[in-house]
Amino acid sequence: MRAFLLLFLLFPVLELYVFFKVSTAIGFFPALLLIIAGSLFGVLVVRVAGLATALSARESLNRGELPAQQMLQGLMVALGGGLLVLPGFISDIAGLLLLLPPVRHFLVNRLRKRAEEQAMRQRAFAEEFETAHRPGTHQPVGREPNVIEGEFEHRDK
């Protein structure tokens, strides 16, 4: 959480630094025009990506398939377009990377694998919970009975 907060505070400073460096290299107004052009391109990408994702999802549903892959692809394109809308060169580069199909496929596959692993862990936990706490047994959740089997002998002095 602290890393996210640090990134959230550091990101605008990095964007300003990069803008300053680019504007000293090519001039202030060309750098400003690049940022405005990037934002306009991002708005266009978000509008087109939303429509394309909706149409692709509808096609998948008509075929009787779940449109998970298309939805994740559309989400990546929309995120890329959103990053392009943000003013700054770092966010524009990240947005352009998300628009490249190989980068999107890599990220979508990684997200899908992570979601599958999470689902497997939750499924394993649910099965373990069901076998430990069958209906009819009155045990508190998360506690196992303290039963020690053995033999004993009572000795008096």
Rank of each mutant, 00 (worst) to 15 (best):
F8P: 00
P102H: 00
E127M: 12
L16Q: 12
Q69S: 12
S39E: 05
I90L: 15
I26F: 10
F28R: 04
F20C: 05
A54W: 15
E128L: 14
K21F: 08
A3Y: 09
M76C: 14
A115G: 04
A31Q: 05
A94F: 15
T24Q: 15
A49D: 02
F106Q: 07
G80D: 13
I148T: 14
M120L: 13
R114L: 09
E128F: 09
R155Q: 09
L10S: 15
E15L: 01
N109C: 04
L51Q: 11
V108E: 07
G27A: 02
L44C: 08
I148C: 05
L96M: 11
P12N: 01
G150L: 04
V18A: 13
Q69G: 14
D92Q: 14
A78C: 13
Q70N: 13
Y17V: 12
L5H: 07
L55F: 08
A119M: 00
E127K: 08
L100K: 00
Q73N: 15
V45Q: 06
V103F: 14
G74K: 12
F129I: 01
R2K: 11
G42L: 03
A94G: 06
E130A: 14
F8M: 15
V103S: 02
F20I: 07
A54I: 02
T24L: 15
L44D: 06
E116A: 13
L32G: 05
A57F: 02
I90C: 02
L72M: 13
L10T: 15
L86Y: 08
A119I: 00
L79Y: 04
R2D: 11
I26P: 10
P87G: 06
K157E: 09
A52I: 01
A115K: 02
Q70H: 13
L6R: 12
R104W: 05
Q69N: 06
V43C: 15
K113Y: 07
G82A: 03
V77T: 11
F29A: 11
G27N: 00
V141E: 14
